[in-house]
Design a protein around this nucleic acid. Sequence first.
DNA 1: CGCATTGCGGACAAGATCGGTCCTCGGTAG
DNA 2: CTACCGAGGACCGATCTTGTCCGCAATGCG
Lengths: 320, 320
Amino acid sequence: MRKDPTGRALQLLSLLQTHRLWRSAELAERLEITERTVRRDVDRLRDLGYRVDATPGKHGGYRLATGAHLPPLVLDDGEAVALAVGLRYAAEAAIVGMEETSLRALTKIEQLLPHRLRRRVSTLHSNVASIRREADDDIIDPEALSVLAAACRDREEVRFDYRRHDGDNSRRLVEPHQLVTAGRRWYLVAWDQQRRDWRTFRLDRLREPQPAGGHFTSRQIPGGDAASFLAGSLGSIPRLYEAEIAVNAAFAELESALRWVDHTPIEMEADACRVQIRSEDLGRLAMTVARIALTAPVAVIEPAELADTVRRLAAHLTEP
Amino acid sequence: MRKDPTGRALQLLSLLQTHRLWRSAELAERLEITERTVRRDVDRLRDLGYRVDATPGKHGGYRLATGAHLPPLVLDDGEAVALAVGLRYAAEAAIVGMEETSLRALTKIEQLLPHRLRRRVSTLHSNVASIRREADDDIIDPEALSVLAAACRDREEVRFDYRRHDGDNSRRLVEPHQLVTAGRRWYLVAWDQQRRDWRTFRLDRLREPQPAGGHFTSRQIPGGDAASFLAGSLGSIPRLYEAEIAVNAAFAELESALRWVDHTPIEMEADACRVQIRSEDLGRLAMTVARIALTAPVAVIEPAELADTVRRLAAHLTEP
DNA sequence: CGCATTGCGGACAAGATCGGTCCTCGGTAG
DNA sequence: CTACCGAGGACCGATCTTGTCCGCAATGCG
């Protein structure tokens, strides 16, 4: 029946520590207790001096008031795994000097862990190998990360050299709003003062960012938040190719084929649809079309260039 | 007499947090309990993962190990960045519940850092967003990771259910040698006892690994180490389809198209070649053929199945 | 305004846990 | 060797915890 109220209190604190809004039911599930007991546990925390705000109503829930100073919390098993896995991933994160550094950090942190977890972490650490990727052209500087993150926080303008994909170099002055990771790449979403527009910058193409002194007031990022803005603009930055295709199948059936390309459905009918796909690489678009052709008839509406490429591809397949 | 074990535990924690030496009698007085109960409470904290050192004898007493003489956590700037970045990456590691978990771990560790670094880490933490991936079909269980890592370390056989890509389920008994990450995927390189051969298993297709009790002596992994063995076998594991194709171009020109498939050149002439390609997935082979067709005429020699698929693909491209 | 959602907290009973007492070990320092 | 101090087993009654069931209050939506 009862497990361990004390441990649960710590666990509850650790959950609330993320400062997100937790609904009673969520907490109950996590802690494997009833909602009633959640309320009791929260009460207990409050008695102990922690400010736990609760709001009733539709969007209600619990939230730890900021500034509460917490007891030292111990990592649980999952967190220990996250640590080991995370720092191992970091070693491959395309950041200069990261491999050695993150392993060093891991070793240091291991020292602080209770025995059981230390063993777990070090086991995980030493029994995992990884296949190196070969692309070494997109390495970024940890210092740059820090500078940009700090500038985002302080709403301070930054200046840096940026090399576009076509090799063009230019000096930029921007208002940095957010760093975003997408797979192994890092991007900065910022308002470009010279262009008077939003831009995303790949961190590996950016050199020596420096605080420029000026401060700015935060703007509304189009698309709601930086991540979706980036997602939307990823395919269109070089905006070399935007294609429209017609497929004799329901849009839903294309999910797997379109998973890795930037796409927008234009028309959706029961057994046919039109989709816009975008990429900086014509070959990639052609492969996407071919991928769709595996399962359904497809035609390229525009651009003519892509239609040509696809036609050539088909010809190569039929008349060797 | 107030009886509130939970509150007392937290109180005790905060007393011990001062890192001075507390004698049992002192604690008993502060907490208004017996010394016997102090011992019990200390035990409880230890069970929860806190390292409480106790020394007997004349100058004995209790003290919290973490940070007593060992300074809180001395990381340099780079290590701090690695920490933040790594745990952020872990969030994308395709491990169930990892996002929450790794961010929680990060917040906890932040508490241990000296001010300057804490600021740095938390800045990085809170100014980075990430684009969620959508593929949720390859999620693995952190518990499985730990079990397998431990089995590798202890050279202990493990048993698990494995689902092949074709949906076939089977129970395996293997000698686990190494975990390997490749991109977002995790693999286990192991000697399969029933098959009497090396196999690689995708962790997301493996269910409930359990130590099987038996121990084994480590074998030499073909290819030298697990990572290169995996790299070599990625394309050929199930080897369901072996196809032979003829291309009207020099073999060298196919390099990029063949990069990610298991292939063997059969005949190489100046402007034509025949290549064997292997994959578990017919669609994948078809896509490889299409990829080649981007640049050169290509024909499928066998199997007929692949020829059919490619013919259908071409038809879909030409007669929508 | 009514309705759904979400948090709040009282009452109660079963039973697990807790804590004081008593006692024996075992390691440390002088 | 001896005093001091932490470790921990056993026992037992007092206490605390928890699930269940309940009606109440605040919020937001249509």
